[in-house]
């Protein structure tokens, strides 16, 4: 079959909402876009373990400690399914991880911000997982089968994390003056970076149009961002926290909240490596990887010895 007829068949499947599967023919650009997006997503889960892991040893109660560890462990699990989904496109986990460690591959910039108080753990669950869910609910219907299926599973756990984060904020907001101040401070610091999670505005997003045509994405960055703001403002009001945006107000005509200008200079700065924790996050990942080198080598050597021993035994039985 000629390339043009394969392309036609591919596009027809996309049109008819039939999922593209690993063995199907697909344009190189589609494959590349997916590997980039899924691996970035996987890296974000893995790097995202660090800011939250930062409070595991200081969680304020036994219940919170166990819940936080379980949450961070879920993120590791998400990283695993996503690496597996990306591997179905022919790129190995090792290649993807090497790209992360060398700084070539990106991950969500939100994880380059520091967790400075316990309330940040609440804010991350509420806002960061909240923003992630808006994006991921859309991705449950993405055109690539393995990615869509991984997303369905991930979304279930993320919505649990979001509720857990909001519940931490609620507890703080109803607590002492110090606790309220801690919650407000966390919201002040995490609000704008959370809005940036949806990526640059539509007119500047270089990958968006093609991804929409291929139904990898189904909503634009700005549409997703608006859904997040609309969903989150009432939640903040309910617990008497103030969103740090003087321009935020309900727009009756649009049926949406209007909100202030995002500081895109900050966004690009963090993307380029100048966020508060870019260096520390990559160093932590590289350190874990480098210190694990002898462990991986030993495991490989042992597996090889075992295989030889099995072969020897089989030969002895045969003779």
């Amino acid at each position: 079959m000629s390339e043009s007829s394969m392309l036609k068949r591919f596009e027809d499947k996309i049109q008819r909402e039939i999922k593209i599967e690993p063995r199907d023919w697909m344009p190189d650009e589609y494959r590349k876009t997916l590997v980039r997006q899924i691996s970035q997503h996987a890296h974000s889960e893995i790097v995202g373990m660090l800011p939250e892991g930062n409070w595991v040893t200081r969680a304020p109660s036994m219940r919170r400690k166990v819940a936080l560890i379980a949450k961070v462990q879920d993120e590791a699990g998400h990283g695993l399914y996503l690496y597996s989904a990306a591997e179905t496109l022919g790129t190995s986990r090792k290649e993807m991880i090497d790209d992360l460690h060398s700084g070539k591959a990106k991950y969500s910039s939100i994880f380059n911000y520091p967790t400075l108080s316990w309330a940040d753990i609440g804010a991350i669950g509420w806002l960061v997982d909240g923003a992630a869910i808006i994006n991921q609910v859309m991705l449950c219907r993405t055109s690539y089968g393995p990615y869509a299926r991984a997303m369905v599973r991930i979304c279930k756990e993320e919505s649990f994390h979001q509720r857990q984060g909001y519940e931490i904020m609620l507890t703080l907001a109803r607590g002492s003056e110090e606790q309220k101040a801690m919650a407000q401070d966390a919201l002040n610091r995490w609000w704008w970076p959370s809005l940036m999670m949806f990526g640059p505005p539509d007119h500047e997003s270089k990958h968006s149009a093609q991804s929409m045509a291929w139904k990898i994405k189904r909503k634009s960055n700005d549409e997703l961002r608006q859904s997040f703001v609309d969903a989150t403002v009432p939640q903040a009001k309910l617990i008497d926290l103030v969103i740090p945006d003087p321009d935020l107000k309900w727009n009756e005509d649009r049926g949406h909240y209007d909100f202030g200008e995002i500081d895109w200079e900050e966004f690009w700065n963090v993307v380029k490596g100048n966020g508060p924790c870019n260096k520390q996050r990559l160093e932590a990942r590289n350190k874990a990887h480098d210190e694990g080198k002898w462990v991986r080598e030993a495991a490989a050597a042992f597996a090889e010895k075992q295989a030889t021993r099995r072969k020897d035994v089989q030969q002895k039985i045969a003779s």
Binding site: G53, V66, V72, Q73, A76, A284, A288, G292, V295
Partner: peptide, 24 residues
Amino acid sequence: SELCGHGPVLEQDIAITNISLDLL
């Protein structure tokens, strides 16, 4: 739990975190 996010391989990170959760 101090190792959460710092394991030598992702699978071992998950296993050790799991054990930590059981113990806690």
